[in-house]
């Protein structure tokens, strides 16, 4: 266990509390003893809160202060690639929603290949072949409609 577990425990406890509060109005058991729609969510959210509290306690008393997110010096570039991946996916989702899927998917492939430092030549050849195969197989053969 690390100190970080305390913060993770707080987040999961909050999720549990949210589910618990929303389940309470659904009720636990009806008058004739038949269980209500709230029984199961109350049980599992209660379990989540209980476990989270134990995790918070274990994280609190832990002396291991090294973060889970800690990277070695030679891994610093990973962080840039990670954020670029997330940014690329986010922009892709927006282009897909507001412009067009075909444009978005070509953009994503070129962007990710660039973010992962693949050569431009490889980038364009890969994108052209891989994405075109995906579009043909999903849109033309399986008739998936990518318009949203």
């Amino acid at each position: 266990m690390k100190k970080d577990d305390m913060y993770i425990g707080i987040v999961t406890a909050l999720i549990g509390i949210f589910f618990l509060i929303k389940s309470l109005p659904l009720g636990l058991v009806e008058k004739n003893g038949i269980p209500s729609a709230g029984l199961f969510p109350i049980l599992v959210s209660g379990g989540l809160i209980l476990c989270s509290l134990v995790l918070i306690y274990k994280g609190f008393i832990s002396r291991d202060t090294i973060s889970y997110w800690h990277l070695m010096n030679f891994q610093k570039n990973n962080l840039k690639m990670f954020w670029l991946s997330l940014a690329g996916i986010l922009v892709f989702m927006l282009i897909w929603k507001y412009i067009h899927f075909t444009f978005a998917i070509y953009f994503l492939s070129v962007f990710l290949n660039w973010a992962y430092k693949n050569s431009w030549k490889f980038n364009f050849i890969f994108t052209l072949i891989f994405v075109t195969i995906i579009i043909i197989s999903f849109e033309k053969i399986m008739l998936v409609q990518f318009n949203v």
Binding site: I105, S109, L112, Y116, N118, F130, V144
Partner: peptide
């Protein structure tokens, strides 16, 4: 590995969508 990551991310997105459009 870079090739695999790009392929996995794109296939995951397309696959998740194609299931129910």
């Amino acid at each position: 590995k870079e090739l695999v990551w790009v392929s996995v991310i794109i296939l995951s997105i397309v696959g998740a969508y194609a299931l129910n459009n």
